[in-house]
Amino acid sequence: MLFAVCFTNFGPYHLARLRALAALLAGRGDRLIAYETAGDERTYPWERRTEAEAFDRVVLFPNRTLEEIPAGACAEAMTEALDRDRPDALGVVGYARPESMAMARWTRRNSRSSILMSESQSVDRPRVWYKEMIKSRRMNLFDAALVGGPYHRDYLVDLGMPADRVAFGYNAVDNAFYEARADQWRNQPEARAGLPAAPYFLTVCRFAPEKNLIRLIEAFALYRGQAEPGKAWDLVVCGGGPQADEVEKAVERSGCGSAIHRPGFLQADALSRWYAFAGGFVLASVSEPWGLVANEAAAAGLPLLLSSRAGCARTLVPDPEGITGARFDPFDASRMAAKLSWLAERPEAERLAIGRSAREVVSAWGPERFAQGAVEAWEIARRSPRRRASLLRKGS
């Protein structure tokens, strides 16, 4: 049987998940086809990987940039591909993208299994009743779901998906890569050249309002003002995006410009070097469906300081806090600063132990867990397809 998945553009973590799923399906005598909407994407300019894969890879618009393709063209191309390939089950990422809705409707017309792959949680943003009603109607198009964790399941249940039709494991990265590469960098003394000399806090994100970088910089300045002279850590902010100018101004206002480093957007291998020598990882987002960079950092063996609004927070930093790191209120700069101080004041041996615990926790949430969850959702859908409401009007 043929299982199909579509992502807008394949980054490293998409490929890791797809490879694990292809391997699991092959062991069952099944096959995976992975659709990629576009060959390029401005929001996440990942390095393009073109080597042969263990799954069938189909790029709908190989020479186009995602943001430039009209919605109608995406839906039409997806429908044409499905009519040609006739998969038995579809993993549909979300219910907003045009190609996702085209996939969901195609499963209805052709009596195929449909699995919603979602990382939305109720606290991500303010919810408007009529939009939630539309989502609830769209939920009728899916037989089962694959989500990151309990908060994501709870949100789908609120929209009408029965809890016993939801599997876990959607949010995964290539744990083995980040673990191995970080350890390799640490064993190369010359690899630290150009990095801050002392332990440093590291954050990796788009420079966008929801990532809360301005408040993180304010919290870092508070931490520096309270730290023992000569022992304060630096802050490294990897990434780029639309809020770059505001971040620059925040750095200037902080009075800590010499201690804040911005190496830009980095591909996975270069980024792993910054993970390797960091003292801890910080994710300060006020809206973060999951936060895959936290998975990467944990796999690299870093203690985690995570916003309580991040979907991964209670999975990767479970109670009691302190074992893998700590959580904080992203709206409170003083509490954020207190968590920075807490981590920086830990003895090195304790910090390393916290990082090892984070690595152990995230090891249960790698690509293989994604593959298991996808197959679990497929089996639920095959055993008992949902009785669905009438087909949604096009564009609803």
Rank of each mutant, 00 (worst) to 15 (best):
T79L: 04
E248L: 13
S254R: 08
Y155F: 15
R17G: 02
A4Y: 01
R351P: 05
T37K: 07
H152D: 10
C312G: 15
R108Q: 13
S363Q: 08
R28N: 13
Y223H: 09
A20H: 02
E379M: 13
S258M: 08
L82A: 08
R356D: 14
E288Y: 03
R125V: 07
A337I: 11
S384G: 07
A244I: 04
Q372I: 02
P330M: 08
K135M: 11
A389P: 01
E288G: 06
D332C: 12
A364K: 06
C312S: 15
A333F: 08
E119N: 13
A163T: 10
E246N: 13
Y151N: 05
P289Y: 02
A34V: 00
P318F: 09
F61S: 12
L116R: 05
F3M: 06
E179S: 10
R31G: 04
L15I: 14
R17F: 00
T43W: 07
I354D: 02
L391G: 10
M336Y: 14
P289N: 07
P98Q: 07
E321C: 11
V375C: 05
G366Y: 01
M1V: 09
S120C: 11
R314N: 09
F61A: 11
F168L: 12
P126K: 10
I380Y: 03
D56Y: 01
E368N: 09
R86F: 07
F61G: 10
R382C: 09
A26V: 06
E51Y: 07
A172R: 04
R109W: 13
A81I: 02
R346N: 15
N187G: 14
Q226P: 04
R356W: 05
K211Y: 12
E51Q: 12
W129E: 12
A381M: 09
M133F: 09
E368D: 10
R138W: 03
A232S: 13
A338T: 13
Q184N: 09
Y35S: 07
A145C: 10
G29Y: 11
G241Q: 06
D56S: 14
P150E: 14
E348H: 15
I134A: 14
R273H: 03
A374L: 02
R192F: 05
A23G: 12
V362S: 03
R127G: 13
R192P: 04
T50P: 02
T8Y: 00
L159C: 09
Q243N: 13
D88R: 08
A299I: 05
I217M: 11
